[in-house]
Amino acid sequence: MENKTAKRINGWKKWVIIAILSILAGCINGFVGTGGGIVIVYMLLFLDGGGEDGTKNAFAKTLVAVIPMSFVAFLVYLKNGNVDTELMGRVFIPATLGGIAGACLMYRIDKKWLTLIFSSLVIYSGVTLITRAL
């Protein structure tokens, strides 16, 4: 199904969709400090097609796109005094090691159950944040 979609959207239409969704992803990432990757990963899955390899490739590509985005947003937040660099000094090493461990595990494990558990956690966190904001 995904491959049919990928074949149907080609040429200028594909670039317009990419441009619109990329602007949306950038605005979200800057405004909320995260979340741009969600838009990009679904856009890539929609345009490139699925499959286990396609999904892993889309996640890796999304990471490549989100890092420069996060860097630009980080510079703006830092300029406005909205970054706790002291805390980051404490968690720098575990964050680095954790990132490497997660990326290595990505190619070795079946993530379906993990994804389901974390999806539930994400939904719960979202509800908690909305309740707090209201």
């Binding site: 892993k56 090691l97 461990a101 997660g102 990505m106 993530k111 974390f118």
Partner: peptide, 9 residues
Amino acid sequence: AVIVGLGIG
């Protein structure tokens, strides 16, 4: 960080 590396949101 492990979750970030795994790419599961």
